[in-house]
């Protein structure tokens, strides 16, 4: 028996679309110097944030993002029913330790870099299902924690591949509420794990592209919508190579999206910042969607947006054992409501 709010194969349509009432984004210096610098709520002067380790610095970013999102909605942690968060580190320690400090009922998530959109989709379900009134979501990543866990330590003198992406140092958080002012989440399309055999840990974009394309195609089929009905389709962290591949895969299925399609990993850095293919990490989509996207929606630049969180479910152990890298993509539809306002960087 299909769910009463289910549409097609993988999509939920919310009966009372939950509202993103506030957001908070915190980034490192490199992201602050990038083209989206002015959009972020806070730019840190250095990537250690005065902490004793990179891992603690990432936690500080995440906690800061939560604080900013709560403050801008005028809320305390006790006003939140559920916290949904995750990150890239083993046992999602950034989210776990931050949740310990906040004392909000917590569900930890691992969706690799798709975690932010995954958390927003789940948060919207909790609210529209009537299980929560307000849900706090967040995700973080840090260049120095991710590189040493998944690849090589920063001081190692190797050349990064041209397909490699730069893990964003940053965290983003959003508060979803059953009522209030702000853009609504009207639909969520839960992605399948798709794996087309990519094994190169320096080429995450290619590993994730099939999953993201699959989710976009499924979403359009489930809702019966055409790409033109969206002002923007934005994926999380595919960067230049993954983005090109998604366009090809989606156009093979008969949809033309290139005019309205972009990727957070392609816009967060300037090409002169030596990031090779572009940005990646949980923080990439979390900070771009939590700042640039919501602020431009508030300004009326985009009214209906399909946002896809893209995750490469990379495990260093499995990779060494010769396994390929599975990808996943989750999508949500954000819709500006008439007369809505969201908190901006200046608020």
């Amino acid at each position: 028996m299909p769910g009463i709010k289910k549409l097609g194969k993988q999509t939920c349509r919310f009966a009372n679309p939950p509202v993103i009432i506030s957001s908070g984004t915190v980034v490192g210096p490199k992201e602050g110097q990038g083209p989206l610098g002015p959009y972020f709520h806070r730019v840190c002067a250095d990537s250690l944030l005065g902490e004793a380790s990179w891992e603690r610095a990432e936690r500080a970013l995440l906690k800061n993002a939560f604080q900013l999102a709560l403050d801008s909605a005028g809320l305390q942690p006790k006003d939140i029913d559920v916290l949904l968060a995750g990150d890239l580190l083993n046992q999602i320690i950034s989210a776990n330790y931050t949740a310990r400090d906040l004392g909000i009922p917590f569900l930890g998530l691992y969706g690799a870099c798709s975690t932010m959109v995954e958390s927003m989709a789940l948060g919207a379900m909790l609210i529209d299902g009537g299980f929560a009134g307000r849900v706090l979501q967040g995700a973080s990543s840090h260049y120095n924690t991710a590189e040493r866990q998944f690849r090589a330590p920063a001081e190692f003198g190797n050349q990064r591949a041209l397909t490699a992406q730069w893990t964003v140092t940053g965290a983003g958080a959003t508060v979803l509420s059953a009522k209030g002012m702000g853009p609504r989440i009207t639909h969520a399309t839960i992605g399948k794990v798709v794996d087309l055999g990519v094994k190169d840990a320096s080429d995450m974009g290619s590993a994730m592209a099939p999953a993201v394309a699959d989710t976009i195609i499924t979403h359009l089929a489930d809702t019966g919508r055409k790409p033109e009905e969206y002002d923007l389709i934005i994926s999380g962290d595919l960067a230049s190579i993954g983005k090109a591949l998604v366009q090809q895969l989606v156009s093979k299925a008969g949809y033309e999206i290139s005019e309205i399609y972009t990727d957070c990993g392609c816009i967060i850095y300037d090409p002169t910042q030596d990031v090779h293919a572009g940005g990646s990490g949980c923080g990439c989509s979390a900070v771009v969607m939590g700042s640039y996207l919501l602020q431009e929606m508030a300004r009326g630049k985009f009214r209906r947006v399909l946002a896809i969180g893209s995750g490469a479910l990379l495990s260093p152990v499995a990779t060494l054992q010769g396994e390929s890298i599975p990808g996943i993509g989750h999508a949500i539809v954000l819709e500006a409501w008439p007369d809505n306002r969201v908190s901006g960087a200046g608020d």
Binding site: A161, L162, V194, D195, L196, G197, S206, P210, L245, Q248
Partner: peptide, 28 residues
């Protein structure tokens, strides 16, 4: 074993995709 578990995509889709990647990837 790994190849068998690659969901429903099948060998042909995998080979086609590897070809697409080859063209999209910049050369060092």
């Amino acid at each position: 074993d790994n190849q068998q578990h690659l969901n429903q995509s099948g060998q042909q889709a995998i080979q086609e995709y590897q070809q697409m990647i080859k063209q999209a990837k910049p050369k060092p």
